[in-house]
Design a protein around this nucleic acid. Structure first.
Length: 233
DNA sequence: AACTACGTCAACCGCCCAGAA
DNA sequence: CTTCTGGGCGGTTGACGTAGT
């Protein structure tokens, strides 16, 4: 059983893209825009899978991509958002203009994970590997001011959080919010300002959960709504 | 200089979801 | 309502470059 393959694999190239292939893809999208990825390769004269074209364009060829090293500010935003969202790289990427989910994912796995571990922080749970409050005092993020709306979230912690795969449930999201990036050392509280949208599409949300609480409490930023609003960016 | 180990990142794979039929 | 299809996402792989011995 299983679904049919996304393309005719017998006649498609794989591996690294050549300059000629890149140019064909760029030219085609310039002329026709991003359309049906499945039919694009044929139309553009590329022996590539549609998915491969899409990935190449999104992760590498798009003109608005910001290449180069991540700034400290971007680092902190990634860490904060990961503590809140888990491995939702596309959502995190949505908060970092010019960065792609793939790039952020790679950066997380190669740099930030190690950085957190070296500070004694578990990169999945965002909590100290050991009960070392000192090392937990790490970062405080101020989201860049180009954004409008604000989510303030104060969260308790009772469990570890970041989901490693699959759908993020409300419970997981709650747990993901559990982190140690607070200015208040030892205080199990997260203050995270997230600015969502801009202009007419901006959205303001706030939530507060009393430390020690176990239920969802009043939480306006539920999983899907959060995702949808972040994706508006 | 040669070899090995490690780090980085582009690309692929398979699954999931939303919308169309 | 069910099935099919395309797009999108997260996890993983593997090629390549660099540092260390």
């Amino acid at each position: 059983m299983g679904r049919s393959p996304c393309c005719e694999k017998a006649h498609t190239n794989k591996g690294a893209w050549t300059k000629e292939e890149d140019q064909r893809l760029i030219d085609y999208i310039r002329n026709h825009g991003e359309g049906c990825w499945r039919s694009l390769p044929k139309s553009a004269g590329l022996l590539r899978c549609g998915k491969s074209c899409r990935l190449r364009w999104i992760n590498y060829l798009r003109p608005d991509l910001k290449r180069g090293n991540f700034s400290d500010e971007e680092d902190e935003i990634i860490i904060k958002l990961h503590s809140l969202l888990g491995n939702k790289w596309s959502l995190i990427a949505g908060r970092l203009p010019g960065r792609t989910d793939n790039e952020i994912k790679n950066y997380w796995n190669t740099h930030i994970k190690r950085k957190l571990l070296s500070h004694g922080i578990d990169p999945q749970t965002h909590r100290p590997v050991k009960d070392s409050v000192a090392v937990a005092k790490t970062a405080s993020v101020i989201v860049p001011p180009q954004n409008d709306a604000v989510i303030s979230k104060t969260e308790n912690s009772s469990d570890n959080g970041a989901s490693t795969s699959g759908t993020t449930t409300d419970e997981e999201l709650r747990q993901n919010g559990d982190c140690y990036y607070s200015d208040n050392s030892g205080d199990m509280e997260l203050n995270l300002d997230l600015t969502l949208g801009s202009g007419s599409t901006s959205w303001v949300g706030s939530g507060h959960v009393v430390v020690g609480g176990s239920s969802a409490d009043s939480k306006p930023w539920r999983d899907t709504a959060m995702a949808a609003r972040l994706s508006l960016l």
